[in-house]
Structure formats: C-alpha cells, structure tokens
C-alpha cells in the first residue's frame, strides 16, 4: 500500500504535466547520481572482460582498456586448449559449494528449529552458547593450530568445507523465520503423534523454503568465493579451489607458464600473461555473473529479514 501511494503521487505529477521546480532539480540530481554510481560499479567488470579480449601487445603498450581496440581471443584459446588445472579447480569448487551448502542448510535449519521451539526450556541457554562466539574469540592462532596440528585437516577437503558450514548470523535469521510459523501447526502434528524430528523434516522444512533459498544462496556464494581457507590449509594442487587457483596464477606468472607446460603446451613464444590473467578472472567469475540476475532477489530478501530483526 505504501509504495502505491507514493507512486500515485508521482504519476499525478507526471500526467498533470506541470513538474514543480524542486521535482525537476531532484530528478536531475537523482537520475544523474544514480547513473554515475551504477556506471562506476559496472566499469571494472567491463575492464576485465575487455582486457581479456585485447591482444597482449596492445595491453603492454597502451595499458588495460575499457574497449578492446585490438581484439584478440588468444587468451581464451590458450586457456581452453590446456584447461586441465582450471577444470580441476572448478571441480573442487563445485563439489565444495554443493556439499558445503547442503550440509550447512541441514545443520542451520535443524539447529534453528530446536532453538525456535518455545516448549524447549533450555533454548535461551543454547542460543547464548552460540551467540557468545560472535563476541569473543581465541583469534586466528589457536584456531589454526587446532585445525592443522590436532585435527589434521590440512590438505583435506574438510578444511574447505567445515570452517564455513555454520554461521551464527544464519542461525539467527533462520530462527526468526521459524518463529513466524504458527505454533498450531506443530501442536496439531504432535497430537497426531509425530516426533520432533519428523515435525522438523516433514513439516517445517517444506514451509521454510523461502528462508532456505536465501541462506542457501548466501552459503553457496561464501563457498564459491572462498580462497581464505585454501590459503591457510591447502598446498596440494589437486585440492585448490577456483578463487585460490586464480589468486596463485595472478601473482605468479611463472606458475602460469608451468601450468600451461604441465598441461602439454609448448611455450616457445611469450605467453600473453596479462590477457590470460583476465581471461582466467572472467572464467572464474562467470558463473556468478550468469546466476546473478536470477538469484539477486533472494539476497535482497535475506537482507530485508536481517534488517527487520536487527
């Protein structure tokens, strides 16, 4: 209702044809600033794509360009000719993203469900047990030593999945969503003799689809973009996720040359390293950009839940 009223007001101003001066000035400022901000947000992406399609010579003589003046797809053709390492990194990332997201959704929803049940007397105590970890921590060092020296998770896929699988913020968001489901639903299921786990799995989960979609996408994004856990815990090349692989390649042209040679490329001439870096960046970011238009609204939804709940 609120949005309609405001829109009505605007359309009145438009149809009446007499825009007041303040509205004209505001429209100029509004459209102008928003357009500038939107362009500034998009330009860097254009720079990457354009550079990946520009010949190496042009980049070296004239710098990275927003429009490819000397078009060349050489970087991509090299990348796709010897894609073994890139594919391996892709597989690691896809596996970790799918596995981590599913596990994270299961654990987050199950935990939140127990915490959301009002007849569970200890729920506040447990909520605080989780929440306190956001206020105080032992810092990086004990955590790192525990994972490496005691749990021996270095160079295992667990080191890429486990650190991101639970997040107190998601538990809070999920809990507040579940709090909005009428208690009568749970009560009637209990009368029908359903156990608490069955109520969670068969009743609550299907009702939570919107919240699960939102949290699932936040989890998936975190896994897809994760390079930090790989930086700390992965030195085995077979286990490098995409972003960390990209990080290594960007900072290490020799590594890139080796990667290409290892894949069977005979590097006689200089590799187009600059455009190759950009092509790798495009390939590593591509899936996110492709999914973006379809998933954006779920993220907006999630932020709005978070904003209301504080």
């Amino acid at each position: 209702m609120s949005a309609t009223e405001v829109n009505l007001d605007k359309s009145f101003a438009k149809t009446s044809g007499v825009k007041k001066t303040d509205q004209k000035i505001f429209a100029a400022i509004g459209y102008g600033s928003l357009t500038i901000m939107a362009v500034l947000c998009l330009l860097p992406f254009l720079l990457v794509v354009s550079s990946s399609l520009t010949s190496e010579n042009k980049i070296i003589t004239a710098g990275y360009q927003f429009i490819p003046t000397d078009f060349s797809a050489e970087a991509y053709s090299i990348l796709f000719k010897y894609p073994a390492e890139m594919i391996q990194a892709y597989l690691v990332t896809i596996g970790v993203t799918i596995g981590g997201t599913l596990l994270g959704l299961f654990l987050t929803s199950m935990t939140s469900y127990a915490l959301s049940r009002r007849d569970f007397k200890w729920r506040n105590g447990f909520s605080f047990f989780f929440f306190f970890t956001t206020l105080f921590s032992g810092g990086l060092v004990p955590w790192y030593l525990l994972i490496v020296n005691y749990l021996h998770m270095k160079d295992t896929v667990l080191a890429l999945i486990v650190p991101l699988v639970l997040n107190v913020f998601y538990i809070i968001v999920m809990k507040s969503f579940l709090g909005g489901i009428p208690e009568a639903i749970v009560e009637s299921a209990k009368i029908d003799g359903a156990g608490d786990f069955r109520i969670y799995a068969q009743l609550i989960l299907p009702l939570s689809k919107p919240a699960l979609a939102t949290i699932g996408l936040f989890l998936a994004l975190a896994y897809w973009n994760d390079w930090y856990n790989a930086l700390l815990f992965v030195s085995d090349e077979k286990l490098m996720p995409l972003q960390y692989y990209l990080y290594k390649m960007l900072g290490n042209m020799d590594g890139m040359r080796k990667a290409m040679m290892g894949a069977g490329a005979v590097v006689t001439t200089a590799l187009p390293t600059e455009s190759l870096k950009m092509a790798m960046t495009v390939v590593a970011t591509g899936p996110i950009l492709l999914a973006y238009p379809f998933v954006q609204r779920y993220f907006v939804q999630g932020l709005t839940i978070g904003a209301v709940k504080g």
């Binding site: 973009n225 990209l246 954006q296």
Partner: peptide, 24 residues
C-alpha cells in the same frame, strides 16, 4: 537496473577485486 548494478560488486571475491585494482 541501478539496484542490480550497485549490488553486483558484493558478489565477487576479494581475489577478483585485487586483480581489477591491479589492472587499474
């Protein structure tokens, strides 16, 4: 369109941001 454009940088990793910054 503007909201989508403004929100886009949130979705890329810091590795990619670092690469873009280096280009610039």
């Amino acid at each position: 369109i503007v909201q989508s454009a403004l929100f886009l940088p949130y979705f890329i990793s810091w590795v990619v941001v670092g690469a873009i910054a280096y280009n610039l």
